[in-house]
Amino acid sequence: MSKPFLSIERLTQKFPDGQGGTLTVFENATFGIEKGEFVCILGHSGCGKSTIMNILAGLAEPTSGVVKMDGYEVSGPSLDRGVVFQNYSLLPWLSALKNVTFGVKAREPGWSKAKVEEHARQYLAMVGLEGDVVYRKPSQLSGGMRQRVSIARAFANHPKLLLLDEPFGALDALTRGTIQDELLKIWSGTGQTVFMITHDIDEAILLADRILLMTNGPFARVAESVEITIPRPRSRTEIVEHPNYYAIRNHLVQFLGQRSKELAGQKSDSTELRPDTVRIDHTDAEAVENPETSPRLRAVNE
């Protein structure tokens, strides 16, 4: 059995519920991510997505379970796991450029000042920030520009795993679209492994290789892993024309609208904790499948 690059095994998180008992947010969450994969996780609020993200980042400790990356158990934060936070988390007293060099200096302590700055400028340019704008403080930048700086800071560090916690949640729809395109561009150039939380189904389909679906909490679990069978490079205007797009979208909407509730609280059978793999592909004429009746391939990670 070959282990995936990132393997999350039997992750369980319990919090005190404030009345002396404990609240199990999620239980035995188990899944894997391959190197170079872009994986999105979808689920209702309260299912513990952000907690999973914090555990992967090393900022929180799970009640039980392990996270292994490259075969080693993850504990504590590390430069190998870069994080883009929803609220950007830029340091407000530093300029955009200094915010990026802050990260590069931490990653490459041996580099000269000039090299650090050149590297930072290169990544800022990749997200469309060039010229005088890099000398501005975050308070003088729009929300979209701040998130661009944050993305540049994360990519410039070449982490083995990039964690994006609802990075576009606070942005308006148009800005969100532009930055999604920039994220795709910068990602396709680096082959970075990305794990991203989102609430936006269309965003997930546009960006991801695979979408993990979580049931509602408490006792949430990762129930399905939906492959996005739309070839890359993708663009937002073209993917909606693809025959698989609405089939996948409908499946996701159905899950989040109905089945996430029905499956909530059910304990997964103890022998198989990995999510069911769902593959919806209408491009092959002979294998036109209804997503509801399609055979579920299980445990593609193993």
Binding site: P77, L79, R81, G82, N87, S89, L91, A106
Partner: peptide
Amino acid sequence: DWVNVARTHELGAFRTAFTVILP
């Protein structure tokens, strides 16, 4: 959030104090 930025960048206690907490 800012302390978390320092933590995810593996800054030691002294560098966190001088580059994040002090400013």
